[in-house]
Amino acid sequence: MLKKRIIPCLDIQGGRVVKGIGFEGLRDMGDPIALAQRYDAEGADELVFLDISATLEERATLSELVRNIAATIQIPFTVGGGIRSVNDAKKLLRSGADKISINSAALERPELITELAAAFGNQCVVVAIDVKTVNGVDCVFSHGGKKATHHEALNWALEAERLGAGEILLTSMNQDGAQTGFAISLTQKISQALSIPVIGSGGAGTVEDFSHLFKETEATGALAAGIFHTEKVAIAAIKNELYTQKIPVRWNPNL
């Protein structure tokens, strides 16, 4: 049986892991390689690295970092941040990334999704969608959550799937950093409508938040950052909770 995935996310800036609240106010969370190793050992099913560096100088080290990550861990990982072309993606895939995540660049030029899928296969292409629900409308934001777009979340997710996305990483900006639970109705609406996997993100605060997400939605993975970096919640504790709730997980601690 296919297992639900627990995915720690590492936001990278200038080669360091950082974390903010509501996409602002960044704090240093440590060394990406050390954290990646820790999460692999603790049973993470996959990792996501998002380079949120503001400048090219800060980002220059990304390929090197990807190479080092690939040499260290034995689980799949996705890399995102600043990928605007097939060439950008190729560099990172050749360095050892398994999947590429795109966000603003896909909103600006949706054909990029198709180009990446044609070049590397759709299983390589993750489209990240940042959503803020305002007055009942699920509005898609770009540029790390700074710019509102004219896209509605479900329509954009369906469009991304049609263009060749292999997976959607759906982040609720309303919930991000709040640690009060995932955005259930948004995640269900989108995961139910799509035929590609959807990863729910934003808002994880307790182990129960994860079982709630998997019981109430068709998300196949759950992504979180802050609670893992600060060791507020252990991956093993989440897996134990999911197992108790009869949700399929890898590394069942009771066997």
Binding site: M1, L2, K3, K4, R5, D45, E46, N122, Q123, G166, E167, L194, S195, I196, P197, V198, E218, T220, G221, R250
Partner: peptide, 11 residues
């Protein structure tokens, strides 16, 4: 009626 790709860990 499946999510495709088959992506993730399976026994």
């Amino acid at each position: 009626h499946l999510k495709i790709p088959h992506m993730g860990w399976n026994s």
